Structures are given as C-alpha cells and as structure tokens.
Amino acid sequence: MDDAVYWYAMAAVLLFFKMLAIAAYQGYHRIGKMTFKAPEDAAFVGKQAAQEELPQVKRAAWAWSNDVENIPIFLGLGVAYVWVGAAPGLAAWLFMIFTAARYMHTICYLAALQPWRTVGYAIGVLCMLAMCVLILAGLSP
C-alpha cells in the first residue's frame, strides 16, 4: 500500500473517532445531568426541556462546528494530495500533524485553554496550506 494512502486513511479514521468522542462527551453531560434542550429528549426521560444547553455541551458544539469547517477541507485536500502523488514522504507528517492539531484544538476548546486552542487551529491550517503548495507542485509538468 502506498504510504500516503495509508497515512490518509489513518488520519481519516482518527478524525472520525475524535468527532465521535465529541458527540459522546455531549451525551455524557446531557445524560449525567438529565438536562435536555430538545423537548422530545426531555420528555423521553420525564423532564421539562431546558431553556439553554449545558456549558459543556455548548463548548463541544463549538468544537464540532469548527471541525465541520476544517476536516472536510482536509479530507478533500488529502485526496488531491494522494491523487497527484504530492511529496509522499511528507504525507505522514502533514496528515498526522493536522490530526494531532485537531485533537489539540478540541481538547483546548473543551477546557477553555487559550492561546493553545488557537495554536492547535493554526497548526492545522498551516498543514493544509503546505498540502496546497505540494499539490500544486505535483501538478506542475
């Protein structure tokens, strides 16, 4: 198997598990405190709907939203990176550093840690910018 394909697949799986963990984190807090904003969820457990989300659930939703803005772009760039054969030796570094940066961003978001959340975000963006440059270089005749 091509190393770049391997590392792309590894990053995709690890990013999926990270996003799954955010969903589980929200559920843990909602169920643990029996606090649900959606009326049908609250009614299911015999409670009234909460007026607002729990702070932990809000933070997790913000982290999720940021993932939805960044991870699909990474996945698209990763496919292009592999297709054009852009610097296969750097694939492991770029894909895994991006993935680690997204984990860092989420952990720092949940823990309200600045400037580390922004550092994690910036590292991920720098990886994607490097991927863009290498993809364009791979397209050159």
Rank of each mutant, 00 (worst) to 15 (best):
M1Q: 11
D3L: 14
A4P: 01
Y6D: 05
W7G: 03
A11P: 00
A11K: 04
V13L: 15
L14I: 06
L14G: 04
L14Q: 07
L14S: 10
L14R: 09
L15Q: 07
F17G: 12
F17M: 14
K18T: 03
M19F: 00
L20P: 01
L20S: 12
A21Y: 00
A23N: 06
A24D: 02
Y25E: 05
Q26D: 02
Q26T: 04
H29R: 12
H29F: 15
R30P: 02
R30G: 06
R30T: 09
G32R: 09
M34T: 11
T35Y: 01
T35G: 03
F36P: 01
K37M: 13
A38Q: 05
P39C: 14
P39T: 15
E40W: 02
A43M: 04
A43V: 02
A43P: 02
A43G: 06
F44I: 11
F44V: 08
F44N: 11
K47F: 01
K47A: 11
A49R: 07
Q51H: 06
E52N: 13
E53S: 08
L54K: 08
L54S: 11
L54H: 07
P55E: 12
P55I: 14
Q56V: 08
V57Y: 00
R59S: 14
R59Y: 00
A60K: 02
A60H: 00
A60T: 09
W62L: 10
A63K: 04
W64E: 10
D67P: 01
V68P: 04
E69N: 08
E69K: 08
N70P: 00
P72T: 13
F74G: 11
L75T: 11
G76D: 05
G76F: 06
L77W: 01
G78H: 04
V79R: 05
A80S: 14
A80Q: 08
Y81M: 11
W83Y: 13
W83I: 12
V84F: 03
V84Q: 06
G85T: 12
A86Q: 10
A87R: 14
G89F: 02
A91Y: 00
A92L: 05
W93Q: 09
L94N: 04
F95G: 07
M96A: 09
M96Q: 12
M96V: 08
F98C: 07
F98P: 01
A101Q: 08
Y103P: 00
Y103V: 15
M104C: 12
I107T: 08
I107M: 09
Y109N: 03
L110Q: 03
A111C: 07
A111S: 08
A111R: 15
A112N: 13
L113A: 14
L113R: 09
Q114D: 10
Q114A: 12
Q114E: 15
W116E: 10
Y121S: 07
Y121H: 12
Y121N: 07
A122S: 10
G124H: 00
G124M: 02
C127A: 14
M128G: 02
A130R: 05
C132P: 01
C132N: 09
I135T: 12
L136N: 08
A137Q: 13
L139T: 05
L139K: 09
S140Q: 09
P141W: 03
